[in-house]
Simulated scan of single mutants.
Amino acid sequence: MSSTHDLKTTWQDRLAAQWTTVKPLAIMLVIGLIAGPLISNYVGWQVTRGSADRQSNASAVDQQAMICSAQAKLENGDPGALDWSARRELAEKHAVMPGRTTADSGVVNACINKLMAT
Score class of each variant (00 low, 15 high):
Met1Leu: 13
Asp6Cys: 01
Leu7Gly: 08
Leu7Pro: 00
Lys8Gln: 13
Thr9Met: 10
Thr10Tyr: 08
Thr10Lys: 06
Asp13Glu: 08
Asp13Leu: 02
Asp13Arg: 11
Arg14Leu: 10
Leu15Phe: 12
Ala16Trp: 01
Ala17Met: 01
Ala17Asn: 10
Gln18Leu: 15
Trp19Tyr: 11
Thr20Ala: 08
Thr20Val: 05
Thr20Arg: 09
Val22Ser: 06
Val22Glu: 07
Leu25Met: 15
Leu25His: 09
Ala26Arg: 09
Met28Phe: 13
Met28Thr: 13
Val30His: 00
Ile31Cys: 12
Ile31Phe: 12
Leu33Val: 13
Gly36Arg: 04
Pro37Ile: 09
Pro37Leu: 04
Leu38Glu: 04
Leu38Arg: 06
Leu38His: 05
Ser40Lys: 12
Asn41Trp: 04
Tyr42Leu: 13
Tyr42Phe: 09
Gly44Asp: 13
Trp45Leu: 04
Gln46Arg: 09
Val47Ile: 11
Thr48Asn: 09
Arg49Ala: 14
Arg49Glu: 03
Gly50Glu: 14
Gly50Leu: 04
Ser51Cys: 08
Ser51Lys: 13
Ser51Met: 15
Ala52Cys: 07
Ala52Glu: 14
Gln55Met: 12
Ser56Glu: 12
Ser56Phe: 10
Ser56Arg: 13
Ser56Leu: 13
Ser56Gln: 12
Ser56His: 03
Asn57Pro: 07
Ser59Gly: 08
Ser59Arg: 04
Ser59Glu: 15
Ser59Val: 11
Ala60Ser: 11
Ala60Asn: 10
Ala60Gln: 10
Ala60Phe: 13
Ala60Asp: 06
Val61Asp: 01
Asp62Ala: 14
Gln63Pro: 04
Gln64Tyr: 01
Ile67Ser: 02
Ala70Pro: 00
Gln71Ser: 12
Ala72Ser: 04
Lys73Asp: 01
Leu74Met: 05
Glu75Arg: 07
Glu75Cys: 07
Glu75His: 07
Asn76Leu: 09
Gly77Pro: 02
Gly77Glu: 10
Pro79Asn: 01
Gly80Phe: 00
Ala81Thr: 09
Leu82Tyr: 03
Asp83Trp: 08
Ser85Pro: 05
Ala86Trp: 15
Arg87Pro: 01
Glu89Arg: 06
Ala91Gln: 00
Glu92Cys: 02
Lys93Asp: 01
Lys93Pro: 00
His94Lys: 02
His94Asn: 05
Ala95Glu: 00
Ala95Pro: 03
Pro98Glu: 13
Gly99Lys: 05
Gly99Asn: 03
Arg100Asp: 12
Thr101Val: 13
Thr102Ser: 11
Thr102His: 09
Ala103Val: 06
Ser105Ile: 10
Ser105Lys: 11
Val108Thr: 05
Val108Gln: 00
Asn109Met: 13
Asn109Lys: 10
Ala110Gln: 02
Cys111Ile: 05
Ile112Ala: 00
Ile112Gln: 01
Ile112Trp: 02
Asn113Cys: 00
Asn113Phe: 04
Lys114Trp: 03
Ala117Asn: 13
Thr118Ala: 12
